[in-house]
Computed example of a mutant assay.
Amino acid sequence: MELRDRAEEFRLLIRDRDTKFTATFDEIFTAGGIRILKTPPRAPRANAFAERWIGSLRRELLDRIIIVNAHHLRRVLATYEIHFSEHRPHRSLGQAAPLRALPDPVEDDIKVIRRDRLGGLIHEYAQVA
Rank of each mutant, 00 (worst) to 15 (best):
residue 112 V to E: 13
residue 118 L to Q: 07
residue 102 L to G: 05
residue 80 Y to A: 00
residue 102 L to A: 14
residue 75 R to Y: 06
residue 91 R to T: 14
residue 118 L to T: 05
residue 102 L to M: 14
residue 80 Y to I: 02
residue 98 P to N: 12
residue 117 R to K: 01
residue 94 G to D: 08
residue 119 G to M: 06
residue 87 H to D: 09
residue 105 P to L: 07
residue 114 R to F: 02
residue 101 A to S: 15
residue 96 A to H: 09
residue 119 G to Q: 03
residue 89 P to E: 01
residue 115 R to M: 00
residue 82 I to P: 04
residue 93 L to V: 07
residue 112 V to H: 13
residue 108 D to Q: 11
residue 86 E to H: 09
residue 112 V to W: 13
residue 92 S to Q: 10
residue 104 D to F: 14
residue 85 S to A: 04
residue 86 E to D: 11
residue 87 H to G: 07
residue 89 P to Q: 05
residue 81 E to C: 13
residue 111 K to G: 12
residue 84 F to R: 01
residue 116 D to Y: 11
residue 75 R to T: 14
residue 117 R to G: 02
residue 120 G to V: 10
residue 79 T to H: 00
residue 106 V to M: 11
residue 84 F to E: 01
residue 115 R to D: 00
residue 102 L to F: 14
residue 108 D to M: 07
residue 79 T to G: 00
residue 114 R to Y: 05
residue 92 S to F: 05
residue 108 D to S: 13
residue 90 H to T: 01
residue 113 I to P: 01
residue 100 R to V: 08
residue 83 H to W: 13
residue 102 L to H: 06
residue 80 Y to C: 04
residue 97 A to P: 09
residue 87 H to K: 03
residue 107 E to S: 09
residue 98 P to E: 15
residue 113 I to A: 14
residue 109 D to F: 11
residue 114 R to G: 03
residue 93 L to P: 06
residue 80 Y to K: 07
residue 76 V to G: 02
residue 85 S to M: 14
residue 118 L to E: 12
residue 84 F to H: 04
residue 97 A to V: 04
residue 114 R to P: 02
residue 80 Y to S: 06
residue 112 V to N: 13
residue 84 F to D: 01
residue 98 P to C: 10
residue 117 R to C: 03
residue 110 I to A: 12
residue 109 D to H: 08
residue 82 I to K: 07
residue 109 D to G: 04
residue 102 L to R: 10
residue 90 H to N: 10
residue 108 D to L: 14
residue 107 E to Y: 02
residue 88 R to E: 01
residue 100 R to P: 12
residue 84 F to L: 00
residue 120 G to T: 02
residue 81 E to P: 10
residue 119 G to A: 03
residue 85 S to K: 15
residue 78 A to N: 04
residue 96 A to I: 07
residue 117 R to P: 00
